[in-house]
Design a protein around this nucleic acid. Structure first.
Length: 580
DNA sequence: TCGGTCACGTA
DNA sequence: CGTACGTGACCGAG
């Protein structure tokens, strides 16, 4: 044992897989594990990371209130924990919370009302039950402690870790009591496995924030100059550049200097020219582009304007660091459970992707799941016929055969079923879907029905989707029906999208673990796509890790369903080149 | 200064 | 009257 701390914990029974709660106070680190707890003095900022790294050698499962609050600095110091239990992430999973602060997660598990999001203030009401202890008489966590009292001395920090461990136990019990919805349930319940991968996803989010996405600054600057003009040095230059872009469109419309950024004035101008459209969305104007140079110029302007505003010089200055890494804030599970990211990381236009390039000596490995949502539907619904189709590389071919349609129609029908579309060309094919894939369709309809009634539901992996909060009594009948149908469509889609997100995160967590020791890192997660930056020498190994990880993940996640999951994996020098 | 609307990028 | 999310410009109410 290389450190006295690790030796002490080992002798106290901490071994691989033991939950060890961690709280990092101002000058102390609090640790708690089943049967014991202790503090570690950490007078210098780096001491905490060193202590954690020492204990990490035992292979514990770190328990923390959230990776964001506890692990951010550790990750920044280069510590990459192997396993964790994120109380915030599991709290979101179990209770469908839209927040993961300690007070909310604690209250939700205790069955108490959620405390008001703490913004530092304290009202007289909050004093109710307040005491010196971390837990108030009414069962809520103390406001004082939530505001930072826990970090002030060794005793409090250890207490905070003990509370975390206590909550972890209760969360684990709750997770294990959820049903395992797999076709062939295993000894470890699926919701428990989901809790682990959701926890790892929360940690991965912190890593993605710290590591950033590699950008080739010269390439990106060249593109911006092309599209929106040179980097403005002053407000006047900025305005001039704006006007220069606008003038191109004005000229194409014969000198009509309308405010292009105001849809109403744009529409009026189009009407004056005999183009009567209900709104000015691009897809609606597209048909007129061939016959009208003005419309064509307007559409080109819109594309450039998008880059200029959202992905322009301001974005480069704000979100790309001096180290040429693009950084945003990552969320592990929003809405139905997908990961989110700010700074445009999830909506980077395809034309800018050539600027996403690895640092020298590295390459990008891009892997994306093929037809993941229909495969997920087959797995979570247990539809044997759809699962049989999902054994093929291209599952729309057998679906087309079953529907006696062509492939495009089959694809539209499957997507329409998952999105809740009822009209249009897909309408007829949906009847055939009902016949061919009755189990899957019944699953979707069941979710939709619950949604319409504003009833809560859970995804395959156990995520609670709270709809009951949104039920409203006092709306008129017509608006109420529209709203109910909208919730129905949301629910229909959320059970598929949410389950796909769970599979994705489980896969990502497995890949992350597999990459240990390769020098490679996940640098982007995009719903069904992983981007890994790896030393050139490891590229082939990383491809193998990514693909084997999917198979090992699918083998437990879709156990018994017979569904196959496929990935397209490529190696390239830029995100754009890593094409299928 | 805020919420609502429009618009549009990604999956 | 096909889902989700994040972003920015503009508008009108406060």
């Amino acid at each position: 044992m290389s450190s006295p701390l690790a030796a002490d914990l080992a002798s106290a029974g901490v071994a691989a897989g033991t939950p060890v709660a961690l709280a990092i106070g101002q000058a102390t680190l609090g640790l708690a594990w089943p049967g014991g707890s202790r503090s570690v003095a950490t007078p210098h900022p780096h001491d905490a990371a060193e202590a954690v790294a020492a204990v990490e050698e035992l292979g514990p499962r770190w328990v923390w209130w959230s990776a964001r609050t506890t692990a951010y600095d550790l990750v920044g110091s280069g510590v990459r924990p192997r396993a964790c239990w994120d109380l915030g992430a599991v709290g979101r999973l179990l209770h469908g919370l839209g927040r993961d602060d300690e007070g909310a997660v604690w209250a939700a598990q205790a069955g108490l009302d959620l405390p008001h999001p703490s913004d530092g203030g304290m009202t007289l009401l909050d004093l109710d039950g307040e005491s010196d202890d971390a837990v108030r008489r009414d069962g809520q966590l103390s406001r004082e402690w939530l505001r930072g009292r826990w970090a002030e001395d060794a005793g409090a920090t250890v207490r905070w870790a003990e509370l975390a461990l206590d909550l972890q136990r209760r969360q684990e019990d709750a997770v294990r009591s959820l049903p395992d919805l797999r076709s062939a349930p295993g000894p470890t319940p699926l919701p428990y496995l989901t809790a682990l991968s959701e926890s790892m996803a929360a940690l991965l989010c912190v890593e993605l924030e710290v590591d950033g996405l590699p950008v080739d600054r010269a390439v990106l600057e060249g593109m911006l100059e092309q599209t929106v003009g040179p980097r403005p040095q002053t407000d006047a230059e900025e305005a001039a550049s704006r006007r220069a872009r606008d003038e191109v469109v004005w000229r194409a419309f014969g000198g009509d200097e309308v405010d292009l950024r105001n849809p109403a004035t744009v529409r009026e101008m189009l009407v004056r020219r005999g183009i009567d459209v209900p709104d000015t969305r691009s897809w609606r104007l597209e048909p007129y582009a061939a016959g009208s140079p003005g419309v064509a110029a307007l559409l080109a302007w819109r594309k450039a304007e998008r880059v200029a505003t959202t992905y322009g010089w301001g974005w480069l200055a704000r979100d790309v660091g001096d180290d040429d890494r693009l950084r945003g804030v990552w969320g592990a599970a929003e809405g139905a459970g997908r990961m989110t990211a700010t700074a445009g990381l999830h909506s980077l236009p395809a034309e800018l992707r050539p600027a996403i390039r690895p640092k020298p000596g590295n390459v990008l490995v891009r892997a994306d799941l093929g037809q993941v949502e229909p495969r997920v539907l087959a797995a979570v619904s247990g539809d044997r016929a759809l699962a049989a189709a999902a054994r093929e590389d291209d599952m729309y071919s057998p679906v087309a055969a079953a529907l006696r349609s062509d492939r495009p129609t089959a694809k539209v029908a499957v997507l329409a079923a998952m999105y809740g579309q009822t009209s249009g060309t897909a309408g007829a094919a949906l009847k055939d879907m009902d016949r061919a894939y009755a189990t899957a369709m019944a699953y979707l309809r069941g979710a939709e029905e619950r949604g319409r009634q504003f009833q809560d539901l859970r995804t395959y992996g156990g995520r609670l989707l709270r709809l009951s909060d949104w039920a409203q009594a006092d709306v008129d009948a017509a608006a109420g029906t529209t709203r109910a149908h909208s919730f129905g469509r949301f629910a229909r889609n959320a059970v598929v999208q949410g389950a796909a997100a769970e599979l994705f995160k489980a896969w990502a967590a497995t890949v992350r673990a597999g990459l240990t020791g390769t020098g490679a890192r996940i640098v982007l997660c995009l719903h069904d796509e992983l981007l890994v930056e790896t030393p050139v020498s490891e590229a082939a190994a990383v491809v193998g890790i990514v693909e084997r990880s999917l198979q090992s993940t699918a083998s437990w996640w879709a156990s018994g369903s017979g569904v196959r999951f496929v990935t397209d994996t490529t190696v390239a020098d830029s995100w754009a080149d890593a094409k299928t």
